[in-house]
Design a protein around this nucleic acid. Structure first.
Length: 813
DNA sequence: ATTATCCGGGG
DNA sequence: GTGTACGGATAAT
């Protein structure tokens, strides 16, 4: 066989067991678009053990009969900054790691095992120093393994040769529409009506199995759902996109396609190795993974990475696209989708448009977010599949693992379950929250201390390995925390500060380049560096982190409070400070101009250490600030603002969920609009009083008091019967559909007993002309949604409550 | 006070 | 599978 050498961009990586041996598979694409798979049989799973002098011999005595230990070697490593002697135990297969680890734990002299809990493919990437999406060279011989690729290489060497990344790839986005007559589509019963795909080169395609007049050329009519699925799958396989993206496709589209495909005995296969889409659990969520063709779930990425900085509170495709692209979906009420299909003709044509539009928006979102996803992939070193799904703490951990590998260090372990629970029970004082005074503020500006925590970590050397060091008596001493102080070493730079400082400095260099020339990739890089640097504080306080350090997290917030208070003091000299939480200050600028704010920011920044920097978040016409319930630690930002274009920005209000009635959500919105857009708190109060009056007079239509809650199991299996279960039971007795998965629309009716006893399905209530319980909707829906807002604009608790009582008093008695 | 249950995204 | 992993809310118990 001839030797080959091939360069490709690494798209994804996994391993497969062949004859009991793990074979790492690298999926890549060359510069000219050829698909390559490299097989690496040389990498063996291993872990480290620490222990007494006799441990090594004890391990040797134990093997090899049961635990497939391939090698034992004494190694000099570092652990948490200190040199240690360790034993590296190499085994035959990843699944032997836990087994061998457990067996060794029983041996005399054992004193801990390490790196037994790192996923095999991740360890491979770290040890080989390979970053996904970068250019990798593989040497070896061609293999005749039968894969749907241009070349399979049995690798003898694999190395990253450049940090050049995959150039703009050819990819697609897709979306399905399902029959949803019962509310929630049920994959056992309800068919997929259509599937649309949009490609990055402009090509569009819709498959559907019901004919209508005047369809566009890209619509392909197929005989039925089976042909729809197989047609779609084959179409994608032929087009060979690098990525296939969806919006919430992990949890919905892919899962649904899989379920319907299996009904017809079709394999849902977009892969290079003819294996079906694999469904795993990624934490609490489902993830759908295909080998080779990388499936990206844009919703998942938006939620984990972007949700903080987005203005929209709901992360549905419509609002996210509106904010990031300035484009909206076509107007279709999801409850009507099945009707549009049944009606056919023009309705069906609109449904097809809507379906395709969703694919196009998902495509555009993918395009928009790709530079950031790519930069994060390169920076953090996880495959883009993971980047688009895992949380920020995994980014931090991956980055740290790579860093310590460079320094010859062993990683600390993930905590066990009991340790996690213990950590969870610890609390510490969080950020400083400057309570807003009740009122409505004009000409608001928000300034942000984006890099506050990273800079604190660096400047005070906050790290688990520098905490209360023995080498310096006078280290960096924290402000008082519970009548104590923590100290951090002044002589040796800690792991975390070293890493964070590197990120900040790199970012400053990138920003310098950006000032010379605007560049999409550089600004994505800057964003990625910022995101990562800002995640270290949260990581230190995260209960399942390897480098968890409560004292570090506590010290960071303690210093943070000091800095933000100082900034507030400075701000107060020039503006009215309204509110401050953690690292942001909201001020009312009164007669002053935007220029004065910029001057202020400059002035503050001049006095700060180079790394620390106050930034403008935005100017707003006005805003109200609502402290979270209790207002203590972990209090989330809860505020509403109207920006200079008149857009309402609502943060931290929980009433956008479907288990709140429309009347509550609608009234809240009206209250905020009255206050912020019309500058009329009295009108807001009147709105609420008016709604209360309407409720009391039974004037509010039933659909506005309906609450949507999903039935998640059979109605008889509930231990505690909540309102939706009770309503479902009563409805089912009358012949209404109430299976697991159904979204129960119910209302709370008048009468005696608990809320459950009085809840009824909306359909039942309509049949029987039942009246809703005004008292419930006032006290449990409308008031909770509006009360705190009204309080902030000066209506006291008593005032709101007494209004309510006088209003209600008239009819309750 | 504690326990059970739900939401999110998707249609 | 070299597992796991949210955070906050309401209503029932």
């Amino acid at each position: 066989m001839a030797e080959v050498s091939v360069d490709f961009y690494l798209l994804d990586i996994d391993y497969k067991t062949v004859d009991g041996v793990p074979v790492v598979r690298l999926f890549g694409v060359t510069d000219d678009g050829r698909r390559v798979v490299a097989l690496d049989r040389s990498f063996k799973p291993y872990f480290y053990v620490r222990g007494g002098y006799n441990l090594e011999q004890n391990i040797r005595d134990m093997i090899p009969d049961e635990f497939e230990v391939m090698g034992i070697a004494k190694v000099k490593k570092k652990f948490m900054g200190k040199g240690i002697n360790a034993i590296k135990v190499t085994v035959d297969h990843p699944s032997s790691v836990p087994k061998a680890g457990e067996a060794i734990s029983e041996l005399a002299g054992f004193d801990g095992k390490f790196e037994y809990d790192v996923r095999f493919y991740r360890k491979y990437l770290v040890d080989k120093e390979i970053h996904p999406l970068c250019l990798v060279n593989v040497k070896g011989v061609r293999s005749n393994e039968n894969l749907d690729v241009d070349m399979v290489v049995e690798a003898s060497s694999v190395e990253q040769i450049s940090d050049a990344m995959l150039p703009e790839p050819y990819f697609c986005a897709f979306d399905i529409e399902t029959y949803n007559y019962r509310g929630n589509p049920r994959a056992e019963i309800d068919p997929i009506m259509m599937v649309s795909v949009a490609f990055s080169d402009g090509e569009r395609k819709v498959f559907t199995w019901k004919n209508f007049e005047g369809a566009e050329d890209y619509v392909e009519f197929v005989p039925g759902e089976m042909e729809l699925i197989s047609g779609f799958v084959n179409y994608i396989k032929n087009k060979k996109p690098i990525f296939i993206s969806g919006y919430n496709s992990d949890e919905f589209d892919m899962d649904y396609l899989r379920a319907r495909a299996s009904k017809y005995g079709i394999k849902l296969d977009f892969s290079w190795d003819s294996t079906p889409m694999k469904f795993q659990r990624g934490g609490r969520r489902k993830v759908a993974r295909s080998k080779g063709t990388v499936h990206l779930d844009i919703y998942s990425f938006v939620r984990t990475v972007l949700s903080q900085k987005l203005r929209t509170e709901t992360l549905n495709l419509n609002s996210v696209a509106a904010e990031l692209l300035g484009e909206k979906k076509h107007e279709v009420d999801w409850e009507d989708i099945w009707k549009m299909w049944d009606d056919g003709g023009d309705s069906l044509r609109r449904l097809v448009d809507y379906c395709l539009q969703d694919s196009i928006l998902t495509l555009k979102l993918t395009q928009k977010l790709m530079p950031l996803m790519f930069e994060l992939t390169k920076l953090v070193g996880l495959p883009i599949f993971d980047i688009s799904r895992v949380g920020m703490s995994q980014y931090v951990e991956s980055y740290l693992m790579r860093h310590i590998h460079d320094r010859g260090e062993i990683a600390p372990n993930k905590p066990k379950r009991d340790e996690t629970l213990k950590r969870l029970s610890y609390t510490f004082e969080g950020a400083f929250v400057y309570q807003p005074e009740a009122g409505l503020y004009e000409k608001v500006v928000v300034v942000d201390f984006r890099s506050l925590y990273p800079s604190i970590i660096v400047s005070h050397n906050i790290s688990p390995d520098t905490l209360n060091c023995k080498c310096c008596r006078k280290g960096h001493e924290t402000p008082e925390i519970n009548r104590r102080h923590h100290r951090f070493c002044k002589k040796v730079k800690g792991l975390i500060p070293e890493v964070v400082e590197g990120l900040i400095k790199t970012r400053m260099e990138v920003k310098r380049q950006l000032r010379e020339k605007k560049d999409q990739i550089l600004s994505a890089r800057s964003e990625a560096l910022k995101l990562l640097a800002n995640s270290f504080y949260g990581y230190l306080g995260f209960q399942i982190a390897r480098w968890y350090c409560l004292e570090c997290a506590e010290a960071t917030t303690a210093w943070g409070r000091q800095y933000i208070k100082e900034t507030i003091k400075q701000a107060k000299k020039e503006f009215t400070v309204i509110y401050s939480d953690t690292d942001s200050v909201m001020m009312s600028i009164g007669d002053k101009k935007h220029e004065d704010v910029f001057d202020f920011i400059k002035k503050v920044n001049k006095k700060l250490p180079e790394m620390m920097e106050l930034e403008l978040e935005d100017f707003y016409r006005r805003g109200i600030f609502v402290p979270a319930k209790g207002g203590e630690r972990g209090a989330k930002k809860k505020y509403a603002l109207v920006d200079e274009q008149g857009h309402l920005v609502i943060k931290g209000f929980e009433f956008v969920r479907r288990d709140w009635s429309l009347i509550a959500r609608e009234t809240q919105k009206q209250v905020l609009e009255a206050i912020l857009q019309d500058r009329d708190p009295e009108k807001a109060l009147k709105t609420v009083q008016d709604v209360i009056r309407k409720l009391k007079d039974q004037e509010v239509p039933l659909f506005k008091v309906a609450i949507y809650t999903q039935l998640r199991k059979p109605i008889d299996s509930y231990e505690s019967v909540g309102p939706h279960v009770a309503a479902a039971k009563k409805g089912k007795a009358r012949g209404y559909y109430a299976e697991p998965g159904t979204i129960i629309k119910y209302i709370v009716t008048r009468g005696v007993g608990s809320i459950s006893e009085r809840s009824q399905m909306l359909s039942v209530a309509r049949d029987e002309k039942m009246e809703y319980d005004a008292n419930y909707y006032v006290n449990n829906q409308v008031l909770p949604a509006t009360e705190r807002i009204l309080k902030v604009v000066g209506f006291t608790d008593q005032e709101i409550k007494s209004k309510e009582q006088t209003e209600l008093g008239k009819w309750v008695s």
